[in-house]
Design a protein around this nucleic acid. Sequence first.
DNA 1: CGTTGTATTGACACTGGTCAAGCATGGTGG
DNA 2: CCACCATGCTTGACCAGTGTCAATACAACG
Lengths: 186, 186
Amino acid sequence: MSYVLLDDGSRQILRFYFPGDILASSTLAYRKSPESIVALTDSSVSPFDRSACARIAIDHPRIMALFAVLNQIAHVTLTDRLAALGRTSAKARIAALLLEIRNGMRQGDRAIQLSFPLVLTQEEIGDATGLTAVHVNRMLRQLEEEGKITRQGGTITLVDEDRLCRAANYIDRREGLDLSWLPPGR
Amino acid sequence: MSYVLLDDGSRQILRFYFPGDILASSTLAYRKSPESIVALTDSSVSPFDRSACARIAIDHPRIMALFAVLNQIAHVTLTDRLAALGRTSAKARIAALLLEIRNGMRQGDRAIQLSFPLVLTQEEIGDATGLTAVHVNRMLRQLEEEGKITRQGGTITLVDEDRLCRAANYIDRREGLDLSWLPPGR
DNA sequence: CGTTGTATTGACACTGGTCAAGCATGGTGG
DNA sequence: CCACCATGCTTGACCAGTGTCAATACAACG
């Protein structure tokens, strides 16, 4: 995940990364990364040099364009999160986070449907949603009491995905993707 | 400005655009723009077709790379805003918004230093900061009482910029820019 | 002049934060 | 094997920051 620390010591988690994602794209613009990145599970990372980007831009314009598309997708995900923080309740934000993580893990593992491991502590969930760990706990319990999810030792099961989506104001954007303008190439 | 509407009718303003900014980059990835854009002042816009992007990627790799850099800058601005919404008080968010708008207007008009016109209604400020118009009013008055700003009919003057920056947790990122990796070209 | 949108202010309600305590759980060292 | 400890989870009581509702004041505008 990536996050920023404020000078009062509080932390805002910005996004979670999943297999195949490109990390630290912001170092394209800044010498010193404005955000920190930490692994929550065992991970393998393939680093490459910034100068490689220049060569890719010249030799593989289609890849550079695809890179721009990926950034736009990440950007829209971030705006959805901004709207969640600014305009929805604590319960909705947590529901949205659960759905976001589930869908993120699905990319790597098609088997994941309704049950998935949640490797986050409640404090981390709070730092991602702008809440305190205590309140995260209360909201998770409520979601469970309302029959939307169940929890058993780090594993979340979506009992009623539809109602959870509605509680979260969740928008699935995968439909609207459109890459038809991309230049040809490999 | 660009914004999204939630199905309960509430609005989250995502960002403000200033002269020279590129609008609606998210249409690179989506057929239907996930966000709405509206002009707050008289504006001129130069539209271009998405297929032009493909040609630019091929013929002008440096411009495509610069486009990626601009997107990263916008992305970091958005993450700063996310941290503000998630982890700072109402007063800090409004202070940060005032500074953001001031600095945005400066780009186009170097004369703007401490005084600038604020074309936003208090409701719009609230929709940008995740607050209600009423509370925005209270916080603006407090900032004024504390001697950080003055207001006279749509014009804001930063009386004590230092203290305002500190109240806002404001981070000026312009220092850290680094474009040295860009491919050569015009 | 009415009308409409915006700003201002007060009283009150409620969401979410704070503080504090008690429980699990798993790891560690004796 | 067991006492010990650290970390995270759970719950309750209370509090503060922000939202809600309502009334008034202003200004622009037809």
